[in-house]
Design a protein around this nucleic acid. Structure first.
Length: 557
DNA sequence: GCCCGATCACCCCA
DNA sequence: CTGGGGTGATCGGG
């Protein structure tokens, strides 16, 4: 049974709930980038230069710049995915989003500088070169060496401020302390004959750093282990240049080599990634202290979920059984039977696939499972849909893609964090458990997810879509649940949730999907805002908030 | 001088 | 294996 009707808003429960956020036909008015950009900048306090900015810490400014960039990228990628021809786009959402951010002043640290960059911390990650440009970490969009001219004893001399080590030049000895870096130039392209590198530009600058003892920022570029098509950049702090020499490369041409040493006493950065790789190679347990279980899910999840405690003697969550799905006693009835698609190659944006139409004509995710949608409800394909399990519209239902671990925090019980870097917008996990009817709260309301709570995700504010919550259901994960139940509250969260609905026969099944608000480096705790019920102040359930954020509201429940 | 943006190479996947 | 999509350890123009 297939319906391509997209105008009948009375069709189903889910559609009524989603009215106003989905079901719009794609039209030219959706391509009003200017108003979208203006709204975005206003939402993130980036439209008025300097005055508003000074209210925030450097870290918050940098965060907001990346979030605006990400949301713009998402908008362009979504349009390209759907109606690239109509918008007359040249593709390259990364460059277009970056150009707009730069033009509109949604950037930070625009003056080049030697040493640390305010608001950028060691271990911070980036998924596009342009992101590092916008926050002033590394200015050129392609080149590996960033340098500036400075006055040194009366002379203007070039000095390198940062380098990107992307593993393209066969660097060795990269163990997190020592880095061998090759100079630039000499026709690295394979179509042209190689020539000698010259002591100019970046190469000359690095030579000056060596002689003057000036430190340089180092960024490691790596393959993203989940999505091998993309790269992750990790900021690893300051290095000194110990020595330089000339080697003979291919075609017997001169290549400059620089040996860099990481400045001691800095927080752990790239070295952590090496450790995590070892944990993966050794299946978790052996090389690491505090591991209680290599897999809390006992094989029910697609990826193991490590359980660790480096804080006290507690051996794990009590009275708890792992389940990776959401148990429904009674789903929500649809007034009409569900629509199902027949997309044998997976659902595509811009087609009349009914599942795409329910998402406003757009595909809600990229091929990599990164959120494209700005809506406050995601329609995923259901059990009767003919599309394969690998369909782009089955992201939240296809299980864990990220290596998560449950760990004991110092003061907030158990918590959740990731071994893998998480890109902004990426699906993280579902909130599994048992859908509870009747009473809103358990006697012990820990591990209850209340989807009736008023919730204003930063993304929906920024997109101009007013929050369309609540959805009337409550999930208890007190006795049965998945990793989602371990995520703690924060007033400055790095994760938010969206309702996800799947239709099957005459029913709608709502789920809660967790997505990254920003890029999240490995081992940083995952947190979301627990929200607040509309009409009550929490009473005895109110708890002191220990999130530590400068924006902390003091309590939550 | 330095800020910007287009090039086609290169990588991965279908 | 080949083509297409997507991004980049330039480089030259304004």
């Amino acid at each position: 049974m297939e319906s391509t009707s997209d105008t009948d808003d009375e069709r189903s429960v889910s559609r009524k709930k989603a009215k106003g956020t989905t079901g719009k036909a794609v039209s030219n008015s959706d391509i009003d980038i200017d108003s979208f950009v203006t709204h975005l900048l206003n939402s993130f306090n980036l439209s008025e230069v300097d005055t508003l900015r000074q209210m925030d810490s450097d870290k918050e400014l940098v965060d907001r710049v990346i979030m605006v960039y990400t949301l713009l990228w998402r908008k362009f990628a979504q349009l390209d995915d759907t109606i690239g021809v109509i918008s007359g786009s040249k593709k390259r959402p990364d460059l277009r989003a970056g150009a707009i951010c730069r033009k509109k002043g949604a950037c930070a640290n625009t003056k080049r500088r030697v040493g640390a960059v305010p608001g950028v911390e060691i271990g911070d990650i980036f998924f596009f070169r342009f992101e590092m440009c916008l926050v002033g970490l590394h200015t050129p969009t392609i080149a590996g060496i960033d340098f500036m001219n400075v006055q040194i004893s009366g002379n203007e001399e070039p000095v390198a401020v940062s380098i990107v080590s992307a593993g393209l030049y066969e660097d060795q000895g990269d163990d997190g302390e020592v880095l061998i870096y090759s100079g630039q130039g000499g026709a690295q392209r394979k179509d042209k004959p190689q020539t000698d590198q010259e002591l100019v530009r970046g190469n000359l600058a690095l030579e000056k750093n060596l002689h003057k003892g000036i430190k340089v920022r180092v960024i490691h570029g790596l393959k993203d282990c989940q999505h091998t098509t993309t790269k992750v950049y990790v900021y690893d702090g300051l290095y000194t240049i110990q020595e330089s020499w000339i080697e003979k490369g291919k075609s017997d041409c001169n290549v400059f080599k620089y040996k860099l040493l990481r400045v001691p006493g800095q927080p752990e950065g790239f070295k952590l990634w090496k450790s995590i790789q070892k944990w993966k190679d050794n299946r978790g347990a052996i090389t690491r202290d505090g591991v209680i279980l290599p897999d809390l899910s006992s094989g029910t999840e697609k990826l193991p979920v490590c359980l660790v405690n480096n804080v006290d003697d507690e051996k794990g969550p009590a009275n708890f059984t792992y389940r990776c799905d959401l148990k429904y006693k009674t789903p929500f009835p649809l007034t009409n039977s569900s629509t199902t698609c027949t997309c044998s190659n997976g659902c595509q944006a811009g087609t009349n696939c009914p599942c795409i139409q329910k998402n406003g004509g757009y595909a809600p995710y990229t091929h990599l499972g990164v959120l494209l949608s700005h809506n406050t409800l995601i329609h995923e394909c259901g059990n009767s849909c003919r599309c394969p399990d690998t369909c782009r519209n089955r992201i939240s239902q296809s299980g864990l893609k990220i290596r998560l671990e449950v760990f004991k925090t110092r003061d907030r019980g158990w918590g959740l964090r990731s071994w893998d870097p998480i890109r902004s917008g990426a699906f993280i996990c579902e909130y599994a458990g048992v859908v509870v009817e009747g009473k809103r709260f358990d006697s012990d309301d820990n591990y209850v997810f209340d989807a009736t709570r008023v919730y204003e995700p930063i993304e929906s504010v920024a997109s101009g879509e007013p929050p369309k919550f609540p959805f009337p259901f409550v999930i208890s994960a007190k006795n049965e649940g998945n990793v989602g139940r371990f995520m703690n509250h924060s007033c400055s969260p790095n994760v938010y949730w969206l309702p996800v609905v799947c239709e099957f026969q005459h029913d709608a099944y709502f789920h809660v999907g967790f997505y990254a608000i920003k890029h999240i480096p490995p081992m940083q705790e995952l947190t979301f805002n627990y929200g607040r019920p509309r009409d009550d102040k929490g009473g005895a359930r109110r708890k002191k908030c220990l999130c530590g954020s400068p924006r902390c509201k003091g309590s939550f429940y």
